[in-house]
């Protein structure tokens, strides 16, 4: 078995290096880059600091650049064939289809999403972007297509269902820098928190019973409870409900309007329910569909 693995490894390596030796350092890309640079320049001279491309310009170009996560399964990730997949990507492909343009996916990180829009290096961000007031000053959000809230998961034998009348000996596990930490510190200052730096350490802490419960984004805790036997999400929605929405560069009215119309129109075919069925149902199951999906941009 080991031998065949090694053989496959070697043959793939040989094949790839052969292919790349043939095509290596080809000058593909440079042409389109300079073209892009030119169109960008024209826009800049047209308006003082408009860096975005309008709807017509995108249609004319034939390609829309959409920033998505490439490593956040199941929202935006790349499968084993190198294809972008996930809840956000499913919607991005629909946008491309209905706009009649090719979708060029750009791999973004949480930290550079705003920068990408402000410099017009992407047309839309569809990277699980939570709508907040601070962000809305920097970019324009369209109608939402998903809900997020905080959730609390705890072991089956002692399910935490409410944060009121808290026993001050019990601690809640949180990951530093998350909205869960901010929310609990502000609204439940009496509950002692146990802070961890990463998902993996927080997970270990819960499994070792260092705290009675773990608070995090509800999508995270729901997925955790479904994948690990013996844990229940006692509080599936805590605090204010936030939404996830597409974002465009500040002031890009034409594109924003088109996306809003698109989201409204897609409600007829229950598009985001279909999106959930195609991408999220394996992780979250049927029961959270109504809680997570926002159809037609309408939140309760």
């Amino acid at each position: 078995m080991k031998n065949s693995v090694l053989k496959k490894f070697i043959s793939i390596a040989a094949a790839v290096s052969a292919i790349l030796a043939l095509t290596a350092c080809g000058s593909q890309g440079t042409e389109s880059d300079s073209q892009k640079a030119e169109t960008q320049k024209e826009e800049l001279t047209a308006g003082a600091d408009t860096v975005y491309r309008t709807l017509d310009e995108i249609k004319e170009d034939g390609t829309i650049r959409i920033g998505v996560f490439s490593d956040k399964n199941p929202f935006g990730y790349v499968d084993e064939n190198g294809e972008y997949q996930g809840y956000d990507v499913y919607f991005a492909n629909k946008i491309g289809e209905d706009l009649g343009v090719k979708v060029d996916f750009v791999s973004t990180e949480a930290a550079n999403r705003i920068e990408y829009l402000q410099t017009g290096k992407v047309d839309i961000i569809l990277a699980n972007f939570t709508v907040t007031e601070e962000r809305a000053e920097e970019v324009d959000f369209a109608l939402p297509y998903m809900n997020v809230a905080l959730g609390v998961v705890s072991p089956d034998d002692k399910v935490v269902e409410s944060l009121d009348d808290w026993n001050s000996d019990d601690q809640i596990i949180v990951i530093s820098g998350t909205t869960a930490e901010t929310y609990l510190t502000e609204n439940y200052p009496d509950i002692p928190l146990q802070k961890y730096d990463s998902y993996a350490t927080a997970k270990n802490a819960l499994e070792n019973r260092n705290g009675v419960a773990w608070a995090n984004d509800n999508t995270e805790v729901i997925a955790y409870a479904l994948q690990n036997k013996g844990y229940t999400v006692g509080i599936p929605e805590l605090g204010s409900k936030d939404t996830i929405a597409p974002a465009v560069s500040k002031g890009n009215e034409t594109l924003l309007q088109w996306i809003n119309d698109e989201i409204k129109a897609l409600a007829d075919e229950q598009f985001f329910h279909a999106d959930y069925d195609a991408t999220l149902v394996d992780t979250y199951g049927e029961e959270y569909k109504e809680e997570l999906v926002v159809e037609g941009g309408v939140t309760e």
Binding site: D33, Q40, K41, V51, N112, E115
Partner: peptide, 19 residues
């Protein structure tokens, strides 16, 4: 960040990530 985003802000160049 300066070269990739900064040159777009300052001069409007749209450099690719690789360049």
């Amino acid at each position: 960040f300066l070269v990739f985003f900064g040159t777009t802000r300052a001069f409007g160049w749209d450099l690719s990530g690789e360049s």
